[in-house]
Design a protein around this nucleic acid. Structure first.
Lengths: 325, 325
DNA sequence: TTGAAAGCGCTAACAC
DNA sequence: GTGTTAGCGCTTTCAA
């Protein structure tokens, strides 16, 4: 790989001038042209490690998510990437696998690589970000709060849970809820919405129909199996995220209870569904928009935005499978 | 962030000794201990930009895929990541979006960042990798060939197509095929398998039932719609990849033809399916294994393996929905 | 506008 | 085994 010295020699200028051409400071038109020509001829690309070392920052942002195989997060990643790449930033996608340890490793790497900032969908409610913040690098939280005074983009989880459950309660009596791990705020909030819907309908929330599981397909499967084994099983279920929805519907299908035989509402889009859209209600969560918003906030911070930390809350949209009364 | 000079001062040794402690060359136990203590106290993490600049290589590998929202590729990514992170390497996941231009950009970044190697699922059959290869960095091709003499891990595409079609031909007469873009080898090979199956069965391949589309859900949808509008529609269909399968089944469902009313075989796993496993035949492609194998080959090359380029071909596994005769 | 030169933090060759 | 030192390729003062 050619260096600026090679380019400088070929163009008959100093290395500093080459650098200036590539960084937009004023250079005479002739020299600019000569440098461009030489750079093209040598297929010169600035060495990023050197640039990063010198500048103490690189045009890379880290996006750390808990599950790269979950379409909700990949959709969000697309949003982040589109905004970032338009602004000339690259995105490094890191999969924490919901493990705080892996997450910390990636956070250290982000620092050690002098990355410009981090977008974090945290694996726990107390992620290891203080050191990153101490270096002055911005962090934006997505989907899950961090307990820090930083920018964030969240979903209206409680409201999403409430809408989904309320919708089911219009046509069903015993509406179950399967959520993610109780210690993850997202999951807890959505469950609160389910409770709220019962209260709003003047009923007691049937806690025997509430299950906290994992945000994965197998979690949805296990919980649904359990619910069906109950002496008095539910006649409808709210799935706390997309993958739980998939697992629950799989189990229902295996038991001959494919929706709408048993009512199903899912929080988040049903990924790659092959069901008719008219049989399952979905509270669509705008994942891509969450990514776009987070990326914009982060870039603004990188550009020196110093205003107080803001949290943007995005609402879900009910795509109803069943008629409102 | 602390530097090795800070650590050296605190530990009462030279910077070189600190470096040695972190790089495994011989240092006396006492000094090692002193350095470790000082490093811990200062929360020292080696600056990667500096290390990379000096070493001319970083412990990062790039994984470039055409569609980050396709579970086939994210499953592969998991395989790559598991192997790489065990070996102390980080994986940077790049989404080329099937655009050769974006792909080239990421390849340049990989070079400019001095990454150790690249795993590439190419967007075209002639990707822009010669410069990377010229720098001596290894590239391993996955899923799609590159026309270069480099290591690769491919699926037995033709065979997968043949098995899927042969299976459908056991119970059906008019077996259609919907594949990805004809100019992508993967797609063309699988279609050849479909033709082969017809020949093997002593029939002419019904080319009016062959559709080349995109490897996405909308591609599968459009092609399936077309096929159903035919004066003499098919009674079974082979989907050339997972997402085409999803799109095709969606359309069938909307037309009241949910499998098994019309026979469906899919090449690749049906992502997050909510169908009963007994209604759709799947030729499972071992995506994770492809990633694992590719990562191992790449790491071996990085470690100096100089043997001739090899291509590993992985076979698919038929998960049958319908009884063999 | 341009060039010379210092230095970002680290590693590796060399000297002891 | 350990320290000194040069230098990876770039950006950015400082002077001209």
């Amino acid at each position: 790989m050619a260096t600026i010295y090679d380019v400088a020699r070929l163009a008959g200028v100093s290395p500093a001038t080459v650098s200036r051409v590539f960084n937009g400071t004023s250079v005479s038109p002739q020299k600019t042209e000569a440098v461009r020509r030489a750079a093209a001829e040598l297929r010169f690309t600035p060495n990023r490690a050197a640039r990063t070392l010198r500048r103490q920052s690189s045009e890379v942002i880290a996006l750390i998510i808990p599950d790269i195989e979950n379409p909700y997060f990949t959709e969000m990643a697309r949003g982040v990437e589109d905004v970032a790449s338009t602004a000339g930033y690259s995105v490094v996608l890191c999969n924490s696998d919901s493990q705080t340890e892996k997450e910390s490793t990636y956070l250290r790497i982000a620092m050690a690589e002098n990355m410009s900032g981090v977008i974090l969908a945290a694996a726990s409610d107390d992620p290891d970000i203080d050191e990153v913040l101490a270096t002055g690098r911005p962090v934006v939280a997505v989907d899950r709060r961090t307990g820090r005074e930083i920018d964030g983009v969240m979903m209206a989880n409680r409201e999403a849970g409430r809408i989904a459950a309320a919708h089911m309660l219009q046509l069903h009596d015993r509406v179950a809820y399967i959520g993610g791990p109780e210690n993850i705020e997202t999951a807890a909030e959505r469950a609160q919405g389910w409770r709220q819907a019962h209260r709003d309908a003047g009923r007691a929330a049937p806690d025997e129909l509430l299950r906290f599981s994992t945000f994965r397909v197998d979690g949805g499967r296990a919980a649904m199996e359990e619910l069906l084994r109950l002496p008095e099983p539910p006649d409808a279920v709210v799935a706390g995220n997309n993958l739980i929805g998939v697992g629950a519907i799989q189990v229902l299908t295996e038991h001959g209870l494919t929706p709408p035989r048993l009512g199903v509402a899912v929080i988040g889009s049903l990924p790659f569904t092959t069901l008719s859209p008219s049989v399952v209600s979905v509270v669509r969560l705008p994942a891509r928009e969450m990514g776009v918003t987070a990326a914009r906030m982060l870039l603004a911070r990188i550009d020196g935005d110093r205003q107080q930390a803001r949290t943007v809350v995005l609402g879900g949209e009910l795509l109803s499978a069943e008629p409102a009364p």
